[in-house]
Structure formats: structure tokens, C-alpha cells
Design a protein around this nucleic acid. Structure first.
Lengths: 128, 128
DNA sequence: CAGGATCCCGACTGATACTG
DNA sequence: CAGTATCAGTCGGGATCCTG
């Protein structure tokens, strides 16, 4: 598929579903949780500690969504105290690469973007 | 840079900036506008028409952010009636590829995700 | 330990009306 | 044409308390 065909799939009407899913994948916590689970199986508390700034609520909600979408597996051990382990599924792991592509882009362009923000003031070009 | 080092950069404390920028890139409209501008220079109304569902306000706000971040250029022609043209900058164009990587992933996995959602009901595994 | 339930505020977003 | 201004509604998301 050509690059242009791809952009069409993002834009076109048939892309509603794609966009909806892209929205979910791209939200504040999803990429972060997936990236964290890249190291392997983790418990709820592990995730909570390793992801700075996430609230219990958001961690729970995002994990539920990821589980529902089949990107993360959830294993409950019937013990006292309870133990729940989260891990990436095969599909979840396949998200790592494209996610890193985007993260890599961000990392690479942070300096340019920050410089641009710092000097922003009616940079708009006027012609005619 | 290894893949693992990349995930660290998404996760680590030094990644706050990255995450903030990733958040902005990944919002509902940004990728869509960038993808639309991939075809070339477009006017405000063109964008408004080609992006189904976007409000005038959100189009304006998102374009301003993209301009501030140096991903989109804005050229005003001092004519009557006014004409304003938007185009991707070099940095903006460089976002296309990673964005497509993610979009490609989404497109490829939509069937699996939708199937997973459809059958979701306490799929959680219990052991012990 | 792993969350569920609640309260609540600010940000995101759409709709509408107005302007240079 | 290309916005700005304003109002209002929804919702993401944090804080807190409670439970199996």
C-alpha cells in the first residue's frame, strides 16, 4: 500500500473506525502502559509505581480497555492477599514497534518543537 | 538506540516532555489534519470540508498549535476576500511516516480488536 | 493487594452569532 | 473568507473513601 493510500485510510469516511481506535491507542496512558509492560509481566502495584503520575482510577480503566481490546492479558491468582498479573498479548506486543516509531519521532523533534514554541509570535507569513 | 532504551525514554522521568508532546500529537484532530495536509497546501475552508466532523473552533485551535510547534506553516494573502494557506513544514512532513506506522497497525488489527471487544466478558484468567 | 464507588473540577468540544 | 467571542454541555481524570 502506498503512503498516500494510507493517509486516505486515516482520513476517509471508512476510517471512522480507524480513527476511533487510533484515539484510544494514542491517549495519555495507553502507550505508557504498553511501553511499561514491554519489560514483561507486572502486577497492579508495580504498574502504579512505575508509571509516574497515573491515578489508581486511570490505571484500572486503561487496563480494562486494553484487556477488552485484547492487547493485555489479566491473570488473577486466587490467593490471600490477591495477586493480579498483567502482560502484553501477541497483539499488544505488536504495538510496541509502531509506538516506538512515534515516540522516536517525538524524541528526535523535541528540540525543534520547543525552540519553535519559545520563539512563537505571529510567525505567520503575510504575502500579497 | 535499542528498542528497550526507547521504551525507557517513553517511561522514564526524563520522558515527561516526550509524553506531553506525544499527547499533543496524538489528540483527536492533529493526526487527521497532518494527514490531510499530506496532499499539499490547503486553505482553511478546504480543511474544514475535507475533515468530516471538525468544528471551526477546533480546526482553528489545532492549526494554531501546529503552527506554534513548527509543524505547519500559515501564509496570509492580503487580498479581498482573505486567503490563508496552510502547508506542512519539513518537520511536519517527517511526522507522516511514524503516524502512518501507527495507522497501519490500527488498520491491520481492527478485526482482531473488534472481535475481542465483541466477545469481551470477564475473559480474565483465574489461576491458583 | 487490587480495585470499586463517589464527588468534583477544569479542560475539551460543539453550536451559534458576530467581524475585519 | 477566515476567523473571534461567548455560552453551554460533556467528560477526562484526580482525590478520597471503602471493600473482598
Amino acid at each position: 500500500m502506498s503512503e498516500y493510500e494510507h493517509t486516505c485510510m486515516i482520513r476517509g469516511d471508512g476510517g471512522r473506525t480507524i480513527r476511533a481506535i487510533l484515539d484510544q491507542i494514542c491517549n495519555k496512558w495507553t502507550l505508557l502502559i504498553v511501553a511499561t509492560l514491554d519489560q514483561g509481566t507486572l502486577r497492579f502495584t508495580d504498574l502504579h509505581q512505575q508509571i509516574p503520575g497515573i491515578s489508581q482510577r486511570m490505571l484500572t480503566l486503561t487496563l480494562r480497555n486494553l484487556e477488552r481490546d485484547g492487547l493485555v492479558s489479566r491473570t488473577v491468582y486466587a490467593e490471600v492477599p490477591p495477586r493480579v498479573e498483567y502482560a502484553l498479548t501477541t497483539t499488544g506486543k505488536s504495538l510496541i514497534a509502531p509506538a516506538l516509531a512515534l515516540a522516536g519521532w517525538a524524541i528526535e523533534h523535541v528540540p525543534h518543537i520547543e525552540a519553535s514554541r519559545a520563539t512563537y509570535q505571529a510567525r505567520t507569513v503575510t504575502r500579497g
